[in-house]
Design a protein around this nucleic acid. Structure first.
Lengths: 88, 88
DNA sequence: GAAGGTTACGCACAACGTAAACATG
DNA sequence: CATGTTTACGTTGTGCGTAACCTTC
């Protein structure tokens, strides 16, 4: 799994709209949908209910998004720890 | 950045040997080295000192590996939360 | 019938293995 | 000179955009 896909899931959870979420990631809507599908298949659980007019988080989706935020925040710490020379 | 590369960094930190670490990930040693290089370039910091006979973690490498373990553990929680139906 | 999500197709880039080159003890 | 890491090169797979298709209000 790649981190960018996790970011896509979080963004879609915030926007609840594939088109806007895709624009925020500078990718086409078609590809964005495939990314979400891949994450869902990879995890073996549906994260979003989309009725072609309405996008909503499933219970599993809510749990995954919460964890995804934690992961992304920790990755941010990781990047910072790589550059900072120790502890000034 | 992809998660598999993070796992490679952690494995190399444990083995301190490119060949063995690569085998543990079922990839060639050549490709494994490129993965590590990419992570280092991506983070803008050298994580391992290799003198072609000795592999050792740099201070930045130690910090990054510690964070990487946290990220991977959190990702494990994420996967579990996706399948578990809620809380019986 | 218009807006929004999905599927099909094609191109381009990046992952990967093999093997040769280079470095160190 | 033997062990171990890096680089070069060719092949294969996958990411990605475009556009057509399906569904709902």
């Amino acid at each position: 799994m790649d981190v960018e896909s996790l970011r896509c899931v979080v963004t879609l959870a915030e926007e609840l709209h594939f088109g806007r979420a895709a624009q925020l990631h500078y990718v086409s809507a078609g590809h964005f949908g495939r990314r979400i599908q891949r994450v869902e298949r990879h995890l073996g659980a549906r994260l979003f209910d989309r009725t072609s007019r309405r996008v909503a988080l499933t219970p599993a989706g809510e749990r995954v998004v919460a964890h995804a935020r934690t992961v992304l925040a920790e990755l941010d710490e990781l990047r910072k720890s790589a550059v900072c020379p120790g502890r000034p």
